[in-house]
Nucleic acid binder design. Sequence first.
RNA 1: GCGCCCAUAGUUCAACGGAUAGAACACCAGCCUUCUAAGCUGGUUAUGGGGGUUCGAUUCCCUCUGGGCGCACCA
Length: 567
Amino acid sequence: MNFLEKIKKEIAREINKALNGKFVKALDFVYPPNKDMGDLSLPCFSLANKLGKNPIKVAGELVAKVSVGGIISGIKVIGPYANFSINKTKLAQGIIGEINKEKDGYGRNKSGKDEKVLIEYSNANTHKEYHVGHLRNICYGDAVSRILSANGYKSIPVSYINDFGIHTAKTLWAYLEFYKNKELPANKGRFLGEVYARSTKEIEKNKTAKQMIEGIMKKIESRKGKEYELWKETRGWSIKQFDNIYRELGVKFTRIFYESELMEIGRKMVDKLIKKGILELSQGAVIANFEKYDLGVLVVLRSDGTATYPVADIPLAIEKQKKFKAGKSIYVVDTRQILYFKQLFKILELLGHKEKLIHLGYDFVKLPSGMMSSRIGNVITYEDLREKLFEQARKETEKRRQDWSGKKIDAVASAIMNGAIKFEMVKVGANQEITFDIKKALSFQGFTAAYLQYTYARVNSIIKKAGEKENIKINFKGLDMKEEHELILKLAKYPEAVRQAGEKYDPAQIAKYLFELAQALNDYYHKVPVLKAEQEVRDMRLALIKSVNQVIRNGLDLLGIQTLDEM
RNA sequence: GCGCCCAUAGUUCAACGGAUAGAACACCAGCCUUCUAAGCUGGUUAUGGGGGUUCGAUUCCCUCUGGGCGCACCA
């Protein structure tokens, strides 16, 4: 249990003692909107209801009965709220002590009880461009995975790559048609994205294209011949590109599944599913008729015999369960597929799957100019974004650090770039569209990862200047913690942010928390000198800012973002 | 037509049913002989319309308007 929780329990106990009953628990406390009102607040509405009294009166009585002392340094009534102030030195001592003891572990909890949770994300397509939409998926999925681990779950990140759809044939067609004898660039995966975009444009002009593409697809599916060999080779290009992206972003998967490995297994299962009555034949197609569940109809095999998504998704789910035996299985997929996932989960349920299936949807990424579309050509690819961000970050760093080597500048710029990508993708709630404005993403001011990294670097600089003295004993007793109190209270709330982010699968809560913490630190930084303070105060302030940096690091780590010692 | 999501400041976003609806960007005015000015301080502006539930609604319910997205053979 974290320190703030202990405090809440203690105050609740005091209140219950005073009222002679079990009325209040730790969870009942809220935070006052204004710091002058106190640190913790008990709204007395439900309590008044239980007691059959007026809430303003109840708050007044409560305050009269509970005595100041121990962890409680003050109580006051504001309308129907009973507000408590926490003893400043005790809080400081407790929180700084706890962070200092737990270090990287501060903020983590065990509420997941080591339960295994599978989380599938970054479901990219080979033979297509990897764009900012995919980035939202991977950044969101990765952050949720990390946050689940911090909440005591055993998170197992997996990815599923669509390498066997008609899009692969489209790309191969355009490749054979327009690029066959051209020299290839170094990043062949990225090149395939361009080829795909070209194919979508050319198909509109070319009447025979559709037929040719279908022919290519058939040959790929037959798994022999020239086209199949070309598919294998180009597939490798995309996979290499993805590996690069994952490495650059620091994202690791326990296992990567491929559609091409599952399709045949799925096809073989279709008959069995028909026999079980889950699927049925209709108008020459195989469907799941789920109208009785109010889930419409899902086509599984088209009347021409070609397969749709579930044919691979069903064996994928079975395979996952066989291999990992997780209690929960999360799919991080664009919210537009919400109906499809309800249908898929129904099939799995009918097949006897007992694991909790969760579709974690998120809204898509659009541009200020509208929806992204490779046909129209307004797509921001990962590589475009990466290059622009890197350039900008390098320019900004160069401006400030003329004495640094090019290598050092690059390393810093690279971390800023990475942070910017991830932070932009998770700072907005999942059910909100992201209007991705490249101009804003290139700014490193305000609610950005760079602001957090900068705050960290700046604090780090003070710590470095102070010199390394390990574990100084701090005597909090004689110190007035007035200037520090806000900041310390904020540090105390970090474990709650982790818990809430975990319960709601919401990394944005961590992002917001970190920003507020950094704001509080910057405010403190400008108000109060650390190195020039007299000895005892200086030691305390150093310990405090070290704690702040520890929390910034812990929080950024949950978003997959690195800190920088200097920038 | 049926269903899902969204609507808050000029813009992009916040707000377990709770107190005076917060930030950031942009704009204007300040702050580097104190620890990194990618920072800080100050200033202007908002809950789409109408009903309900509640002591209390941005939040829950209904309805209207406006936008987005899904709804058997596109993946």
